[in-house]
Every structure is written in C-alpha cells, then in structure tokens.
Design a protein around this nucleic acid. Sequence first.
RNA 1: GCCGGUGUGGCGGAAUGGUAGACGCGAUCGACUCAAAAUCGAUUACUCGCAAGGGUGUGGAGGUUCGAGUCCUCUCUCCGGCACCA
Length: 764
Amino acid sequence: MEGYNHREIEEKWQEKWALDGIYKVPDTEAGKNNFYQLVEFSYPSGNLHTGHWYAFAVPDIFARYKRMQGLNVLYPMGFDAFGLPAENAAIKNGGDPAEWTERQMEAMRTQLRSMGASFDWSREVVTCAPEYYKWTQWMFNQFLKNDLVYRDITMVNWCPKDQTILANEQVVDGKCERCGTEVVQSEQQQWMLRITKYADRLVDDLDKLDWPEEIKSAQRNWIGRSEGSEITFKLSTDDTVSVFTTRADTLFGVTYIVFAPEHPLLEILPIENRDEVNAYVVATKKKQELERQQSKEKTGVQLKGITAINPANGEEVPVWIADYVLSGYGTGAVMGVPQHDERDREFAEKMGLAIVDRPLVDKKEITEKVGGKLVKTYRLRDWGISRQRYWGCPIPIVYDPEGKAHAVPDEHLPWLLPTDVDHTPDGTAPLARSKELLERTEKIFGAGWRPEVETMDTFVDSSWYFYRYLDNKNEATFASPEKMDTWMPVDLYMGGAEHTTMHLLYSRFWTKALHDLGLVKDSEAYKVRRNRGLILGPDGNKMSKSKGNVINPDEYVERLGADTVRMYLAFMGPYGVTVNYPWDPNGVVGVRRFLERVWKLKAKIDVEKKVCKTDPLVHKTIKGVGEDIDEFKFNTAIAKMMILLNALEKEEKIVLGSYKALLKLLSPFAPHIAEELWHELDETESIHLASWPTYNTDFLIEETVTLAVQVNGKVRGEITIAPDIAKEDIEAAALALPRVIAIVAGGQPKKIIVVPKKVVNIVF
RNA sequence: GCCGGUGUGGCGGAAUGGUAGACGCGAUCGACUCAAAAUCGAUUACUCGCAAGGGUGUGGAGGUUCGAGUCCUCUCUCCGGCACCA
C-alpha cells in the first residue's frame, strides 16, 4: 500500500464525484424526508479565503451526515454576483463588470470544488443573471402593486467615494462599510420598501423561531419598538403639536416642549426671534449626524412668543428647539420632563427651565383623558433600495413625459441592464449615460419616456435566492409552488453574525411580503439559524493584509490536503456559536497526523478476526459522534474518533467491521481519504452513498464501572465494581479502601451517598 | 447607559450537579539516527514532598448542596448589538 498522498486522491475523487453526479439532489426521493441546509452564498471575489472554508466546508460535514442518515439533503451554492467590486474593477482597469464577474465566478467554482463539498451545482443561482433578476424585478412589481414600494425624498447616507446611497446598516461608525469613507447626509429621492409595515411581525415572530437569543435580541434592538403615547399640545397660536412619549405617566411634570430643528411647524409659526431660530437651524444642518450624536452638549433656542398648553393641567409652558431631539423618531417633538428624564434635566438646568416634582399617574388613563392615543414607534426605517450604480439589478420603472413613474410591465422583464455604459464615475448614475436603455424605453413606451437609472441594493437580490435554488431553471415563475412545498422552510441556515440585522432581517421581511401576496406558504423562511464565529490569524487578530497574519487556505490544501483543512476547522471548537478561533499552524498538523494514522491502521485489518476488545468502544464512538454532530460539536466528534483510533492502534489486529465503521464516521469530515480507503477495501459504491453506521446497545452495557470514592466531598480513591452491585456492597467496598480507613480511623460515617456509576461520598 | 454573549492549563478547547482539564497543539525526557526531520514510547494544571501522600485550583465575593466550572445573589473583564430613540 502506498502512503497517504492527498494531492492524488483528492483530485481523483473530486472528478469522479462530479462525473457520477452523486450530489445531484432530486426534489423528492421515495422513502426519504427532505432536508434543506443553507449557507449564505458569497460574493464572487475570485479569492476563496479561510472564512469561506469555515462557512462552507464545515457545514458540509453536517450535510453529509444528514445524507448518510437517510435524508434527501439539499446543500446548494451560488453567487451574490451584483455589487460594487465588479464595477470598481471596471473603473480601475477598464472592461466589463459582467465579464469580470464571470471570471471571478469561474475561479471560485474551481476553488470551491477543492473543498470537496457536496454542493449540488446543477442548482447554482447567480443573482446577476437576467434569468434570475427577471424575478427580482417581477417581485418588485408585485410589491409596487401592493403598496410595499414607494418613492420618497429622504435624508440619505451618501458615500462620496462610491457615489452611492447607503442603508443605515451599511454605515459603520459614520463611515462607508465598504470603503471607509466618511458618509455624508444628503436629501435625495429614492425607491423605498415598506419594511416598517412589518416591524411588529418581525419582532413578534422571533418568539416562534429556534434561533439563538443573541440573534433575536440584536434584531429586536435594531427594530427598536417602543410603546408609548402620542399626546397633542395646543400652542398659543392655535396650532397644535404632537409629542411621543413612553412616559405619559409624567405628563404633569412637563415644563417645556422641544422641537427637532427640522420640525415642519417651525416654518409657519410666528416666531418673534425668527433670525436667531433660523441661524440655529442652519447651524444644525451643517453638523453631520455623527457630530451631532457625539457632542452631547445640550444646545437650543427658545421660540419667543410661542407657548404650549399642557392638556393635563392647562399649564402654559415655553417651546424650544434643540438638536437633541431627533426629527426621524417619534413625532420629532418631545415634552420636557426634567424631573424624570436625564436629558431633559440636563437641558433644563443649562437653559434655566423649571424642574417640578409632580405625582405620577396611570399611563393609559392619562393618555385617554387628554385625548391622546397609545402608539408604537420604531427605530427601524423603511428600506431605501436605490443605488446610483451600474452593476446592480435595474429598477424596472419608466417615467412618462410628465415625469410620472410607471412599472415596466411584466412582459418586458427582465428589464435588462444595458451594456453601453462608460464606467468612469462623474457623480451621476451610470445608466443615465446609456443610449441603449433610453432607446429601448422610447421604443417600447413612446417618445419622451425616460428610464429609471437607479439600480437596486444588492440586499434585494439576496432576499429571495433560497427559493430559486429549488427551481433555478423555471421560466414561468420564480419557483414552482410544488417544489417550494417539498423544501421550504429552510431546515438549517448557517451564516455570519454580520448579517444579523441586514440580510437576515431583509429576507425575513421579503418572505413575509411574499407570503402576504400569496406567493409563498410560510411567513418565516428559516426554521433554525446558527451564526458562526470568525477564524482569526495565528496572532489572535482578525486576518488582514496589513497585519500580515492572513492564512491562505490554498497553501494548506496543497501541503496537507483539503481533508485536513476541513477537519482542522471543525476541530477548533464548537460550530454555530459566535466565538472566534485563532488558526494554529501547528494544530492543523495534528489533524493531518490523525489522518495518516487512519491510513496506516488499514494494515492491521485481519479479515479472519471477528471480535476484538475494542468492539464496545466502536459502538460507543458511533453513538457519541452522531450525537455530537447533531449539536454542531464537530470538535468533540473528532476527539471521539481520535480516542477510537488510539485504542485500535494498540491492538495487534483489528476487525474489518471496526475499520469500516471508523471510515464511515470519518467520511463527512474527510470525504476524500475516507472514499479512497473505502474503495481499497474492495467496496465499489461511494462511501458517501452509504448509510450512517448504527450501534448495538448490547455493546454499550459496561461490565465494570469505576466509581470515585470521596470523603467529605474530596476524592480519596476509586473502586471498580460490577455496575449492578447492591448499594450496601458499594458502601462496604468504599469503606474498605485503605486510604478511607486511614481517614475515617474507626469513626462512624454520618451518611454515605451512592450515585450509581459515578461516585460514593462518605460524609464523616 | 440598555440588551445579548463570554471568562477553565503555556495554547485551541472537554466536562446530563458527581473523579475538572477529554482530544489536539506545544513543551520535557527516552527509543530509532552519524545527526536532524519524521515516527514511536513516557511525562506534562499549580504547589509542598526523596517518596508515600498532602494542599490549592474553572475572573472575584457570598450562598444552596453530601458534592458546584455547572444552580442562586452580588460583582468584575472582554466581545457583540443599540444608544441624546424621549
């Protein structure tokens, strides 16, 4: 037998598996239940890094395990292929983003294949393909018809470098998530999706989901529901202003009212110190949002000549504007209750406003009494999806000569992205420069019609991709109801923690919207969600080129093999928890050693041998490995296989069945070496089509058990006895230990506790 | 500040309230070798002791229990989310 040559066998089996199509998944298979396991598809960067391996290769263990257990497992892969990097590459080097993307995808497919993952490539989904975005646009049209889409002028986050709008989720510490440029606020028209309409359900339905609390809590925080009252104050000018408060019970303690500087009433009120007020408003607008949030120093200006009447007691209180009141939240005006609110107190003290201590009242009663209403507000904003970029899904809208927006009718979908675009950025949307798009629009709709030149946020593309895997070639609909019935909802969705309040929230919204339109059955797409952690550099820091701590998986695959890399990543710690693990270049060698020893162990097989004293351990290992995989504890599953190997190696000769069982247990983790060794045993069918080994409980019955003997809770020795021995005999055996006799020294134990198979505690 | 998570050897980590540190890495010693690597064997929480054996130990302080890494109370650290959100 040759030595373990990973290069040879990995390539050989990858080719063979592809050729035989062993991972091609039918929509239904007789006698098998379907299991839909999803991982977040990736952007085609053309560079498969350690993170990808951790994201795809480790869940592949689970998919393979489920398949061997007799489930019909779908584990698909695709590409979230629209997005800025392709366009930036085109800007930098010239060329076409579509071609660039295709090249990157081809490179990535090759790299992905090197993982030995069991993806069903026949179901691949590529979001930038017209066959795909046709349905993205179709859904947009459906949403438009059902009032889930609208056009609005809003303050947006604008990245001056990328020349595009960013969602709040894409702004990190006031900087563009992608390029790190300081984000500025600017007022723009854009297409909005009414995600806020679903805010309550997005919060409430979390309770039904088997998701880690950490994810649910992050989504709740992000949506930021708060329940309170809207109360109207009359002004001295006969105008009225509504305030939102969660503390209606403090209404009697109101000593002033404050507007946000952007409040629309400011323009119409007869303010005596108009110049002073305007100056404050202008100064506020100049401040960027970031600055406004950082400097907590209270500022503000009183609106002279304006007062408000407290509806609870008729008291007349002054009215101010101050930038500590946010225009985008609640009603953009608050009641100042310095006695009960820290911010109000700070403001009142600085401005010399009254602070009064009044009794609290019932929130609900007082709200009703003063004609207010109980309301909920949310931190979540509607989702602006307009991007002034080229490489995205075109928004299927055209404008008539009067400038009115119309949906591009379904029969003209896909509304193709034009190709005649100069990618040099000039601050305008690239599609505005396309002759092709304009001519197409006029040809179909008439002279004077103009196309929408914005493209969609790529989070739109990824909000429904998991449906398309189920039926990726369907030309009549995005996915047939029958196929969705057999697969949805997703049984297990593993992904990155960074998507918790972005993709994960958006796609939940999308599913609910499709559900309400009768297009899908479930209102939640993912039954179980697990976030994974990060693989850090050997120095314990996040991998980055500048730190020089980047681990290139290709090098390790070349040197030690894909099986070793997969298995090492699984061995580092439990999966599905957001814990970060540093890559240990020595640790990975340990896994390789394990595989080599499995390889060598084959020489010890004795086909004549039928029983071995390791047989019970084999059964125990089968049980344990299965249980660990069920809980995503791949690390301890591997440890158990190592324990078994250690024991088998100590034997002169081993039973063939034991070796086969070990190979089966190993096969989800290290699919190539397991397949190779399996075939060397004269097996002809793939090990990956074999069934998961079963264990015989007869072997799990222990002949003897070892109990710790404690005196007053401290371990003083141990006894090895038959498991079914009587309590009295156990006590006697424990008391007979020389060390116990020495400690007890003839005294009478107060009590003896016997925990079967575990411990004897002599309390003395 | 609010919410969520985390804390165990030199390192990654393991432990249904029942012998803390499985498994792996690293380290030390030994075998093999001219030598090194690889491989194999032994040791490896800390500490006192020649040894037998003892003491201490899961961020910290209390508590419940025959028995606590695990349960309870308080507290600290680090990581993540939200944050002038009324």
